[in-house]
Design a protein around this nucleic acid. Structure first.
Lengths: 359, 359
DNA sequence: CTGAAAGCGCTAACAT
DNA sequence: ATGTTAGCGCTTTCAG
């Protein structure tokens, strides 16, 4: 059996309480005994038992992240922020992947087992109402990322305005025949981006051609995938003659798929079709995508910060943090026809943060 | 305070032992008392305290994965296999990202804290010898993925033969002026793939032109990155006139970067330069990369299986599982000049598994 | 400042 | 079949 504080107490000829105090850097220990204890502990290669600590302290120093599984680069980049921040504060991260909608419940249940985690970061999925209640009672800090529920802290991006900005960029380049490819509208971001798109056209009194709006019915990844983008573009191409001169696409990965479909038909971006997408995942740069940047890494870090804050002040009103996505102009929109790609024309100004307490 | 077995024992007028038995589906409980207990538990919304269970049972039902951080798609695909398998057996996954070599120690230390996890999956990094010893003593199952140490179970890919196959494919297409771009040779896979490349040329008595071998000195991600590939190709292009007609590149991501660099010079793949790379990440298909497929998802699942097996039989000799990567022919090598991409010409035969007990 | 003792919530061996 | 009890390893009063 492994070394316990009893072992080291015996060796150091002190009580276990003292040993405990030493490791918790409690002030009431003389320098001599502290050093004596530490010496023995080192000699015996003592390591505290995390679960015993957790049980006694009534906290676990671990957070859970529940993610609709991370084959999606968007999540990975957020997750990276989460991971770095969590380990920087000495906590552990438990990862729950949700590959199928049916698994949401299971994941929620598993991570909310009593004493399992001190906080939960919940990604992108709509939080079932049954759990909203349950979690409120649980009294464990929860923060929502890329999704919203009025009872919890949330970190989101202004999808509506982002979509509007993207569309207006296309309009400003002279396009009037503009289409959109959006992910499954079961997903809130997809739905809202579509609304933003419509609003932008309306604002500029451009007629919406419903034929040029392709709404993905792919369920896998809610249609935020290369395949979904590819299929959607195929469909748009199939519809015949009046291909729009510009398309707003609800995510970078979809745009990449869409570009493939265009290439197959011998069509070029931006010459034949201009494209603006959303997210600015790392690959967007490679493809020269003009896109709406979401500060993913930052969002991940903030999620962790917010959980920590929430632990300290459980009764504060839910906070809603909303980021304004930023237009990153590269080649796919046709605004810059200079060198092929790899170069990135974004102005590296700081992301705007809009932290507004929820009413 | 939350509900404990004491609460439910009192309510159901039974002993805590009985309650415990019910939840552990111990046979010695009558149907009536079982149902009574279950009813009360449900009414009170009882949830077992994971840490208390862990402490009493002396096991945690969680595994840790230590990954050189997953901005690399290769790891993500393995991790996905790991994640799915782990949750399918009802375990939890703790994720330790290692972003900097200095953090390896810290991660190792943290996940090997006593009673923290029941097993560790260690990815791609060379295991420091100090820890090899320490972990042996720890008596906790450890499996290495994409890296090797003779004292532990490991799951790897035949890098040498894979590189050889890739190179020979290029040779079989008639190329004789073949170059290679490899990641940082601090990484074993990068180094071994380079050796395989050399061996293939030698076998076919083709002279090695050292100028056409670019070894990345990028340290970030050990040079397995788009940027590293881009820079390496730039360097190769800078060297002047004798660009090889074919290049073997040590990973798909690097190949993607390299292709960017070629495009900037107006060079086309495979017309001007044929390319074969390694890994077959999801994106490889999109780029039409001919590549050596590693069964990443499978490797992840297997890692979990092996940890479980190792728990059952701690004293068995270390197992070494080696996969033979499979050549997937797409467009980048020039063997098929048919349609642009998206289509995948691989024969979907099963991956070969070579499980050989270590000596 | 330090030792002893009482939990933390659960499991498992031991009685009955 | 069920209740009782002794841990699991640590934290944290409570005396002294």
């Amino acid at each position: 059996m492994a070394i316990t504080i009893y072992d080291i107490a015996r060796e150091a000829k002190v009580g276990i309480g003292t040993v405990s105090r030493v490791f918790n850097s409690h002030p009431n220990v003389t320098k001599e005994t502290r050093e004596k204890v530490l010496a023995v502990a080192k000699r015996l290669n003592y390591q505290p038992h995390v679960y015993a600590q957790g049980l006694a302290r009534q906290r676990t120093n671990t957070f859970a992240a529940i993610i609709p599984f991370f084959t999606n680069y968007f999540f990975i980049e957020i997750l990276q922020g989460v991971q770095e921040k969590i380990s920087s504060i000495g906590f552990d991260l438990i990862l729950h992947g949700v590959n199928h909608p049916d698994e949401i419940d299971e994941s929620l249940r598993r991570s909310s087992r009593r004493g399992r985690v001190d906080g939960i970061i919940f990604f992108s999925m709509r939080l079932p109402d049954t759990f909203a209640k349950k979690w409120k009672d649980l009294e464990i800090p929860i923060v929502l990322v890329d999704t919203f529920h009025e009872e919890f802290d949330s970190i989101t991006v202004e999808n509506f305005q982002g979509a509007q900005t993207a569309t207006e960029h296309l309009i400003s380049l002279g396009h009037t025949n503009i289409g959109m490819i959006t992910a499954n509208v079961k997903s809130d971001p997809a739905r809202i981006r579509l609304e933003g798109f419509r609003a932008a056209l309306k604002k500029h009194t451009i007629e919406v051609n419903e034929r040029n709006i392709i709404v993905s019915d792919v369920t896998k990844l809610d249609g935020f995938s290369r395949d979904a983008g590819y299929l959607a573009m195929k469909e748009m191409l199939k519809l015949g003659t009046s291909l729009p001169t510009a398309i707003f696409i609800s995510s970078d990965v979809q745009a990449i798929g869409a570009i493939s479909a265009l290439r197959e038909k011998g069509l070029r971006v931006p010459d034949d079709v201009a494209i603006v997408s959303f997210d600015d995942i790392e690959l967007a740069q490679h493809f020269g995508l003009t896109t709406m940047r979401q500060p993913m890494h930052r969002m991940g870090e903030l999620a962790v910060d917010q959980i920590v804050k929430r632990k300290q002040n459980p009764s504060a009103l839910p906070i809603q943090m909303r980021f304004m996505p930023e237009l990153v102009v590269r080649q796919s929109c046709g605004a810059k026809k200079i060198s092929p790609n790899i170069e990135d024309y974004v102005h590296h100004k700081d992301i705007n943060e809009v932290a507004a307490p929820h009413d």
